[in-house]
């Protein structure tokens, strides 16, 4: 029974980490720039691929850090790409969809059809025994990375001038602009940060996740679900929504595996029907 509980918790925890870190980055980018990025999962997968390649050259920790660092450049590029091509929300959707496909094509070109992972390196970290179950240290390290990123984001948003600007733009871009905030610069840095978080979490999750073609789209749907269930408001909403979705998904996997996918969507439908703008949405403004 204890063994079952532990394996349930581990399964919950790992999926929670994956979904949290993708949706957090997505929520961050969307909140500030209002760009709904269909290629968000692509950056997660990019982080995983890069970490898997680097880790074999320079070691696990450096590999993951290098992958995250390399992804920093992609955020501003992404922002400029979308802003150059898409003026309206629909055009932006189109632009990011094209990016999703291009990313998938490039992954196939550069990385081929194989599975990429750092799992065998991560095994070397050993594991700790909890109630008779082996829990790999890599999971704990992954959690530490997630907590660190979360704390970083919180401090940035709540304690710095840049964070103040980002919150101002998120709440009312027009007003922020009228107050002299450079919305473009804020958008650039928010995209950079959102994509850094996503890619870094992809890199960290390479310790237990195999990266392969087609994963971008799957990750995207989970992140999308967490974003919407949480409501685009604050970090806490996304954290809670990721936990809810992971719990439901894990329960479905353990109890009734065929319903794994459907269960998540039923949660989303139920939330949207009762709270049309998410569980933790801020007050909607009129007009």
């Amino acid at each position: 029974m204890a063994g079952f509980a532990i394996s349930f918790l581990i399964s919950f925890y790992v999926f929670f980490l994956n979904i949290l870190m993708t949706s957090l980055g997505m929520a961050f980018t969307y909140g500030v720039t209002r760009i709904l990025n269909l290629a968000q999962g692509t950056f997660f997968v990019l982080g995983g691929y890069l970490a898997s390649v680097f880790a074999w050259q320079i070691g696990l920790a450096f590999g993951i850090a290098a992958a995250a660092a390399a992804s920093l450049a992609f955020g501003p590029l992404f922002y400029l790409y979308v802003k150059a091509l898409g003026r309206t929300e629909l055009e932006q959707l189109f632009a990011t969809y094209a990016l999703l496909l291009i990313g998938e094509g490039l992954f196939k070109l550069v990385f081929g059809n194989g599975d990429y992972t750092t799992a065998s390196l991560a095994d070397g970290l050993g594991s700790v025994e909890v109630l008779g179950q082996q829990v790999p240290y890599s999971y704990l390290w992954g959690g530490a990375v997630a907590a660190a990123l979360l704390a970083l984001m919180y401090l940035l948003l709540a304690r710095t001038r840049a964070g103040l600007y980002m919150r101002a733009v998120r709440d009312d871009a027009e007003m922020a602009s009228a107050l002299g905030i450079n919305v473009r610069e804020v958008g650039l840095s928010a995209s950079a940060l959102g994509i850094l978080i996503t890619a870094a979490s992809g890199a960290a999750s390479s310790m237990w996740q195999a990266f392969t073609l087609g994963l971008s789209g799957q990750i995207l749907v989970y992140a999308f679900a967490s974003l919407v269930v949480g409501g685009i408001g604050d970090l806490l909403g996304v954290v809670a929504a990721s936990a809810v979705i992971s719990a439901v998904r894990t329960a479905a996997v353990f109890l009734y595996p065929q319903l794994e996918l459907v269960a998540i969507y039923l949660v989303v439908i139920a939330v949207l029907l009762t709270r049309p703008s998410g569980l933790f949405a801020r007050h909607a403004r009129l007009a």
């Binding site: 969307y30 679900a225 459907v262 029907l273």
Partner: peptide, 21 residues
């Protein structure tokens, strides 16, 4: 009841429930 990305995800979810069925 929903608009914007909430509408998109709601319609996506409905279709995926049908897919699951």
């Amino acid at each position: 009841k929903t608009r914007g990305i909430y509408y998109s995800l709601l319609s996506l979810s409905l279709s995926m429930v049908l897919y699951g069925v």
